[in-house]
């Protein structure tokens, strides 16, 4: 009797575990697909630098959660991330090509920039790793004590930008129209030259990412008067007002929302459009597991990389909110950031 029961138990157990195995296999053909496959992660910049570092970190940990796969990083630089984004967009949507590029391409798509062969609305969004806090910094010797002084300035405030059509240029002119503020943009300051211009006193102010400008602020050569983008406070910026606390017109508000949303979607990962739903789900799951992996978090800390992840549909929604502006807004934005 007893043996019978045990036998029954065994049989039942075996059946159950078999069912479980069958179930697992049946529900994850898309995960099994990755066994023995190579996934290419495209980075739209050269090796070294922020995008590359994030990409290599994400790729390493996604490989861990796509069992049996190999995730390799390929750098496809050029034309301000456009070539990389085009390459990802045009890749076969089989889940073996994913990649990263600058969210600032939203501006390019809005004005129909030359060379763009993608529609950001159609990418299969996988996730984003960070949000960027950006700051408005004035030189330590300038008379401006608060952002209110900037907005009330009668004389134009010269603002350096790397060049017409670049992300920082677009941001400067959009904020000038949205706030509004009396900015006069001086293009031609590539990279760190803008900060030198602050030191030399050629221009009173600059805007840029906190990571980029933290050296200037730490050296007490510049004062942050306003922050925008991510609201996840950086301790060093405590007491610096966020742009959302400035009251502006409704049209201005929607433009500021656009700028903020672009900065919030930092270090994104996307796949080509038209992915099979199951495979996209697997990639999103692997991305989510990677970004919540305790070792990745530890590594990010070591490399001094901020983390503020969001996943799948939420990123899709954020991007859509950025691009899908009202016709009036679009017209206005095109006016502001046109490149001729």
């Amino acid at each position: 009797m007893r043996t019978k029961k045990i036998c029954l138990g065994f049989v039942l157990g075996a059946l159950l575990s078999l069912a479980a195995t069958v179930h697992a296999a049946a529900s994850n053909p898309d995960l099994d697909f990755y066994k023995g496959k190579t996934v290419t992660y495209i980075v739209s910049t050269k090796t070294g630098g922020g995008y590359d570092t994030y990409a290599r970190l994400v790729a390493r940990y996604m490989q861990k959660y796509l069992p049996g796969s190999k995730v390799i990083v390929k750098n496809v630089p050029g034309a301000g991330h456009i070539i990389g984004a085009n390459t990802i967009y045009q890749a076969a949507p089989d889940g073996l090509t994913i990649g990263t590029f600058n969210t600032g391409l939203i501006y390019g798509q809005i004005v129909g920039q030359e060379g763009i062969q993608f529609d950001l609305n159609k990418f299969s969004w996988i996730g984003k790793a960070n949000s960027e806090t950006r700051v408005f910094v004035v030189g330590a010797k300038t008379p401006y004590k608060s952002f209110k002084d900037i907005m009330e300035s009668k004389s134009p405030i010269k603002m350096p930008s790397s060049g017409v059509g670049s992300e920082d240029h677009n941001e400067t002119v959009i904020l000038a129209a949205a706030l509004p503020a009396n900015f006069q943009v001086v293009p031609g300051y590539a990279g760190k030259e803008a900060e030198m211009a602050i030191l030399r006193g050629e221009v009173p102010a600059v805007l840029g990412s906190y990571t980029g400008l933290s050296g200037l602020i730490a050296a007490k050569e510049g004062r942050a008067l306003m922050q925008y983008g991510s609201e996840n406070g950086i301790p060093e910026l405590n007491g610096v007002p966020h742009i959302n606390s400035i009251s502006v017109s409704p049209a201005g508000k929607s433009m500021i929302d656009l700028v903020n949303s672009i900065d919030v979607i930092g270090r994104l990962t996307a796949a080509p459009p038209g992915m099979p739903a199951g495979r996209l789900a697997v990639l999103r799951e692997a991305y989510k597991k990677a970004l919540t992996d305790a070792d990745l978090i530890k590594d990010a800390k070591k490399y001094n990389l901020g983390l503020d992840p969001a996943y799948g549909e939420e990123v899709q929604r954020l991007v859509a909110a950025g691009i899908n502006q009202s016709p009036d807004n679009l017209k206005m934005l095109r006016q502001i950031i046109k490149t001729d």
């Binding site: 030359e114 790397s162 060049g163 017409v164 059509g165 293009p187 031609g188 590539a190 001729d340």
Partner: peptide, 9 residues
């Protein structure tokens, strides 16, 4: 390449 002053390539 891109001219930073005008954004023209």
């Amino acid at each position: 390449g891109m001219d930073p002053q005008t954004g023209v390539v």
